[in-house]
């Protein structure tokens, strides 16, 4: 049986752990709120962009000289996976969930004989996947140390992707990230970026048949400017959802940790009191039996 002093020390250390996890939970909750409102604020732009692209893309997608960003290179050999995770850990299965998802995806693609390239966003995912797939890495991006992620950061990632596309380094680009379903549930999911999945034209039933637009300057020119922007929006949205999801996951993980620490403190305290009482009883017996012997 552990001595009283040892027990006391352990109780104290678990108590300070609980304080830390509690503080981290509060911080995560505060940051979650901010990340969530940022993600919500970005939604209108993405929605309207989608609407505009739907009317524009359908008109151009069938023509043979449609831009690569829209239709891809027409092949399906080299896959670029953009894997998005957080920069920090202590968030339960948040990072490893995406990592596992990405790994399964890479395995199936390679089993089909495709070439896989990985671009990782966020430090944790890079560390996770590098263990197994270091040779497939083409780059990593990290937003570590940044307070908020701006649209310009997403645009930078997109500039990198489109440069690779121009150089013909990949055919299909897929984004893997944690979709923010709710505060307690983040779902690793994938989204194809290139070739762009064209949204269904018949989604809007309010205005009847789609209006015919005039374009100024030309359709092609607008599309050429709109597509990178759209890609940026997609990436930006994923980044924001990812960071909101991260704080949600961290909040949960820290909540659990705090609860577990509380349980442990209770157990240890019980143990401590039992030992203390046993000690007192033993001392009493010693005194009494000593007195009787006299």
């Amino acid at each position: 049986m552990a001595s009283l002093k040892m027990l006391r020390m352990r109780i104290n250390s678990v108590k300070s752990t609980r304080k830390i996890t509690q503080a981290m939970k509060m911080v995560a909750a505060a940051k979650l709120r901010r990340a969530q409102s940022q993600a919500e604020a970005a939604r209108p732009y993405a929605e309207r962009m989608e609407r505009m692209l739907a009317s524009l893309g359908a008109a151009v997608a069938t023509s043979p000289d449609a831009p690569q960003l829209l239709v891809g290179s027409g092949r399906d050999q080299v896959h670029l996976l953009v894997v998005m995770t957080a920069d920090r850990g202590l968030a339960g299965a948040f990072n490893s969930g995406v990592g596992r998802f990405a790994r399964a995806r890479i395995r199936t693609l390679e089993a089909e004989g495709k070439t896989v390239k990985i671009l990782s966003i966020g430090r944790k995912g890079a560390v996770y996947l590098k263990r197994e797939f270091a040779s497939r890495f083409v780059g990593e991006v990290s937003f570590q140390g940044k307070k908020t992620v701006e649209f310009a950061d997403a645009a930078e990632v997109v500039a990198r992707i489109s440069k690779m596309l121009e150089a013909g380094e990949f055919d299909v680009c897929t984004l893997i990230y944690n979709r923010f379903k709710s505060v307690i549930s983040q779902v690793p999911s994938e989204q194809r970026l290139i070739p762009a999945p064209l949204p269904e034209l018949q989604t809007e039933t309010t205005s009847g048949p789609q209006a015919m637009y005039e374009y100024e300057p030309s359709e092609e020119e607008i599309l050429a400017a709109l597509l990178p922007q759209n890609l940026g929006v997609q990436v930006y949205r994923a980044i924001l959802e990812n960071s909101a999801g991260f704080y949600g996951a961290q909040m949960n993980a820290m909540d659990n940790a705090t609860r577990n620490a509380g349980e442990m403190i209770n157990k240890l305290t019980l143990n401590y009191n039992r030992t203390r009482q046993a000690n007192i009883t033993r001392e009493l017996i010693e005194i009494i039996s000593g007195a009787e012997a006299v």
């Binding site: 505009m52 209006a211 005039e214 374009y215 300057p217 020119e221 607008i222």
Partner: peptide
């Protein structure tokens, strides 16, 4: 707009402009 300022009033013809 990319090719000059453009005043828009209600009932404008549908357009997409840069």
């Amino acid at each position: 707009a990319a090719e000059g300022e453009m005043g828009v009033l209600p009932g404008h013809a549908p357009m997409i402009v840069a």
